[in-house]
Design a protein around this nucleic acid. Structure first.
Length: 436
DNA sequence: TCTGGGGTCCTAGGACCC
DNA sequence: TCTGGGGTCCTAGGACCC
């Protein structure tokens, strides 16, 4: 993907970068199909309805922080009129691709950065940029039904910063173009906002910066990039350069192959026996293998992990084991066997495990012939993954599975999603019905 | 009782080689 | 026992992001 990033300081005609993102994305998705949620405090919960991962503006105003456990908020929900939804990733993923397709039409280039945001290359004068930004908001609002904010600036870091300003100042109408702000205003904001408000500067880096007297965005902008490179990293050096108008964050290669595939989940009730954990590994390995097959990849290394609760007292246990596979594969049978076997080696009976995961690395494209494996004598077995995939596509995720993974009924540890909305856009039977 | 999941990139350090 | 420098490759762990 070509990045048309210009580093010019001049306005008027110089290419600019827009960062467009959806406000409170998960909540906004829920509202598209349930307008009763409009104007009310709404939160979306993580898997197992564990903790809050998204909040509407009204929920934020109530002081509900992201990451708080639901069981702490729940007692107050009724009084607040607070609505909770389990996360519905099928819905969010589908609406995301609609938003991204639409946004792509406005830029000379587009880099999708996350499920709810992308960078766009925008040419044109300052006046044209503002017109385009407004048109983006209108189009996404009308065609998908979710609100977005647009930040426009000469670099990605500054575009993120501009977006942040647009979000916090409702009077700006959801758009902030740095070029049209008076320099004094920008400096004032930058000397007030802590450096950790920037993209790429987290808590730890913030602490180390503060120890050097670098507290605000303005301080970091004024820092010597070479000193920052030496004492921190090339990543933070780029942040400093970008704050000063030099675009240097490399383009995101969306077509690059993944480096790893993870399937990891917490359980709705603890797993304590080796037999149950075998079952978990069988299910998780197959889910991860299905994802890998969708991406057309195969793995050469498999890692399994499990963990006890970080909030429970007593002896913690975080077993983990990696296996080098005899040859790169996407065969769910081999992968399931390997996962179960690896976990048996490190599992501690009697511990209360609350989560586990299966991780594939050493990924490569699977188009080449699968390497000959003398242990797989039956040729048909090599196509078992395709078969499972097509059955699942037709009859649903739980329709078929191998061995322990072919659970007819959900196991005691399987995921809890009590407040889930329907899969409005990806499941025929969940299609909304409109009456006129 | 009940506390998420899926990624990326960078760096440091060790093994190994000439 | 003393004793070099330079390079690559790999992995684990840290930090960050949404």
């Amino acid at each position: 993907m070509s990045s048309g990033t210009a580093s010019g300081e001049t306005s008027g005609g110089a290419a600019r970068i827009a960062l467009v993102d959806v406000n409170n994305f998960y909540v906004s998705c829920e509202r598209v199909f349930d307008p009763r949620l409009e104007g009310r405090p709404v939160v979306v919960l993580s898997n197992n309805d564990g903790c809050v991962v998204a909040r509407s503006q009204e929920a934020k105003s109530l002081g509900i922080a992201t990451g708080v456990p639901w069981f702490q908020v729940e007692p107050l929900a009724r009084r607040w009129g607070l609505v909770a939804r389990s996360s519905n990733y099928e819905l969010y993923g589908d609406l995301s691709s609609r938003v991204m397709e639409l946004l792509g039409r406005f830029g000379v280039w587009q880099e999708v950065y996350s499920i709810d945001e992308c960078f766009l290359g925008l040419p044109g004068s300052e006046a044209q940029l503002r017109t385009t930004a407004g048109a983006i908001r209108t189009a996404v609002g009308r065609r998908v039904g979710v609100p977005v904010c647009v930040g426009v600036a000469p670099t990605k870091t500054l575009a993120k910063f501009a977006n942040h300003i647009a979000k916090r100042n409702p009077g700006m109408g959801g758009v902030c173009s740095l070029d049209s702000m008076p320099a004094g205003d920008i400096e004032r904001i930058q000397s007030r906002v802590p450096a950790t408000g920037l993209w790429g500067v987290g808590r730890k880096t913030g602490q180390r910066l503060a120890a050097l007297g670098i507290e605000t965005i303005a301080d970091l902008k004024a820092a010597d990039p070479l000193m920052i490179r030496k004492r921190f990293s090339v990543v933070l050096q780029r942040t400093v350069l970008e704050l000063n108008g030099t675009a240097c964050i490399p383009p995101i290669d969306e077509h690059a192959d993944k480096q790893q595939i993870i399937f990891s989940r917490s359980f709705s009730s603890p797993v304590t026996t080796a037999e149950e954990m075998d079952q978990v590994m069988a299910v998780y390995a197959q889910r991860a293998a299905a994802r890998m097959a969708e991406d057309g990849l195969r793995a050469s290394v498999l890692t399994v992990t499990a963990g006890t609760s970080r909030f429970a007292g007593g002896a913690a246990s975080f077993p983990s084991a990696s296996v080098q596979l005899p040859a790169p594969t996407q065969d769910p049978i081999q992968l399931t066997r390997a996962a179960v076997g690896a976990m048996r080696g490190v599992f501690e009976a009697g511990q209360k495990y609350v989560r586990a995961g299966v991780l594939f690395t050493g990924l490569e494209p699977a188009d080449a012939q699968e390497a000959f494996d003398p242990f797989v004598s039956d040729l048909d077995q090599r196509h078992i993954g395709d078969l499972l995939g097509s059955v699942r596509a037709k009859f649903g995720e739980a329709a078929i599975g191998l061995g322990q993974g072919g659970l007819a009924a959900p196991a005691a540890w399987s995921m809890k999603r009590e407040f889930s909305s329907p899969r409005y856009t990806t499941e025929w039977k969940d299609l909304p019905v409109v009456r006129a």
